[in-house]
Amino acid sequence: MSLLELHNVSMIYGSVKALQGIDLTVEKGEWLALMGPSGSGKTTLMNIIGCMDKASTGSIVLDGVDFTDVTAGNLTMLRRDKIGLVFQQFHLIPYLTAVENLMVAQYYHSMPDEQEALIALERVGLKERARHLPSQLSGGEQQRVCIARALINYPMLILADEPTGNLDETNAKIVLEFFQQLHREGHTIIMVTHDPKVAELAERCIVLEHGRIANRKDRRIVCREEEVS
């Protein structure tokens, strides 16, 4: 059974069709890159997969649970239990330290555990920076805290929205190495990116155009095509 199955998913805002007839399957442990120009529907698709928005039509099954018609409350529960989010702009809570930012995710999920949060920070090489506020961390460090936070509740699916978009080359490399490590460990990752080099690291790459999947080929071919265009 696939981890994620989308059948004929559409999203319509008034007269705007943000997504049209999306069919997509993601297997457990797969790394999928999602590419496409601005306004192509990447964010809308991520919001739907991340249980933050409901599709206008179509069905979505995550880990065997069909959440096409679930209530807002159940959607929150699904998001909390099954999804880990990594953002381009990090979105750390500015008045909480790095370790406290991880504990907030634990707090909403189950029970805050400082020791576990410190271990998660150690894993991303930031144990020494655990008591620092986000404003005292570099962009790369903030993104690593964001990744640690995404992993703290053992999610089934990691959604990463342009995780290297705000980072310099050195920090982007460190962050991507983490994603490669996560992939090796068997995590399922869906990553939005504009960068073909980042997309090349994924097992599979799809391109969205005007709310439809424009191409679904071998990742290297697609990414090279994107690079050329």
Binding site: P94, E100, P112, E114, Q115
Partner: peptide, 22 residues
């Protein structure tokens, strides 16, 4: 302090929101 209750985390969040956003 390793494990903390939800209540103490709640209090921590409230105080930090007040004190660190002076």
């Amino acid at each position: 302090m390793i494990k903390m209750t939800k209540y103490s985390m709640y209090t921590k969040m409230i105080w930090n929101a007040l004190l660190r956003r002076r």
